[in-house]
């Protein structure tokens, strides 16, 4: 109703009560979820087979060793007290010490993030960029050869595990053609970029199936709506329609999609890092699982959960920021 007369500038700056409440509720619930996660992660060590002493001392530890572990880590004290100590550590960025490597878990995570983060960013740009382009192209020409081809490829992509794609790319471009290095993280600078090409391509190809399909469906819906037909009837160009009708309307779904891409990328990267022998956070996790290095498992899990919760929170807030319809619904629904 008020859309046509919506003031342009400062009058809308102040947060409307419904929106303010939404933001507060979202932030508070995100914090609550992280507290719940911290409890679950804390209980990991108690859920391990043989109890916490064996989780740290190994299965062959003697009774004296177990006793000293119990005292050193405070396993003989009540659970709530242990939890508060654990929580205090986390808040200071202290996840304890790796049992195998005898270094602080925070240091290990810091080192591996340096490998994983560029890969994550690189892959995200590839998967979103190519997925958007393909999705919009195929949606605007439904039934074309490109559309059918991309439908077939997305079926194949959804059925192919990341490690199969990675092994294939490593074999084709790394071994047979020799264009890119098939293993390792590189020596920094341009060499690192060269080493990241195949891993990033692997993770992106797997995700491309999802990003293309979702973009294709949503853009296709919008192009069938009256507003798109009306824009065409007014003789407005393809680009104008794309920018003002398609992207404006699909914005919320695309932001949500890009968020879920980050989340599922994390799983994909565990496999990709394994295939290409990259010393990233995924490899750290898998090695810790094989070594039963509980503090590392706890630290990595907490950090990944923090990332997932943060991404979901940011996505929800960005959706509110870009779509006035969602904000308007908040005000009327109270």
């Amino acid at each position: 109703m008020t859309v046509a007369t919506a003031p342009q500038g400062s009058a809308r700056r102040a947060l409307a009560p419904g929106l303010l409440r939404y933001v507060v509720v979202r932030v508070v619930s995100a914090v609550c979820v992280m507290f719940a996660v911290s409890i679950v992660v804390f209980l990991f060590i108690h859920a391990a087979p043989g109890g916490p002493e064996h989780a740290i001392g190994g299965e062959l530890a003697t009774e004296e060793q177990l006793e000293s572990i119990r005292q050193r880590y405070g396993f003989d004290r009540p659970l709530p007290e242990q939890y508060l100590q654990f929580l205090g550590g986390i808040l200071h960025g202290d996840f304890g010490e790796s049992i195998i490597q005898k270094t602080p878990v925070a240091t290990l995570i810091g080192e591996t993030v340096k490998v994983t983060l560029p890969l994550l960013a690189f892959t995200w740009i590839l998967a979103m960029g190519a997925g958007l382009a393909l999705g919009i192209l195929t949606a605007s020409r439904p039934g074309s050869r490109l559309d059918r081809f991309s439908l077939g490829m997305t079926t194949l992509g959804a059925s192919t595990p990341a490690f199969v794609v990675g092994t294939f790319l490593a074999w084709l471009f790394g071994v047979q053609l020799g264009w890119f290095p098939a293993l390792g993280a590189g020596e920094g600078g341009l060499d690192t970029v060269r080493h990241l090409v195949l891993p990033a391509a692997t993770a992106a190809i797997v995700l491309l199936a999802v990003t293309t399909r979702i973009t294709r469906v949503r853009v296709g819906q919008i192009l069938e709506e009256d507003q798109a037909t009306f824009a065409r009837a007014r003789g407005l160009g393809r680009w104008w329609t794309l920018k003002h009708v398609v992207l404006r309307n699909a914005g919320v779904q695309l932001v949500t999609l890009s968020g879920s891409v980050v989340v599922s990328l994390f799983t994909g990267l565990i496999l990709v890092e394994r295939v290409f022998n990259l010393p990233g956070i995924g490899s750290l996790m898998v090695d810790a699982i094989h070594d039963r290095d509980m503090p590392v498992i706890q630290g990595v899990t907490f950090c990944v959960a923090l990332l997932v919760v943060t991404v979901n929170l940011v996505v929800d807030l960005v959706c509110m920021a870009i779509d006035p319809r969602l904000r308007a619904r908040l005000e009327t629904n109270r």
Partner: peptide, 17 residues
């Protein structure tokens, strides 16, 4: 909904052996 299944499976496998 927003929790990746494979990631949880990896963590659970890691914790329980």
């Amino acid at each position: 909904y927003s929790v990746p299944a494979l990631l949880v499976a990896i963590v659970v496998a890691g914790v329980t052996g």
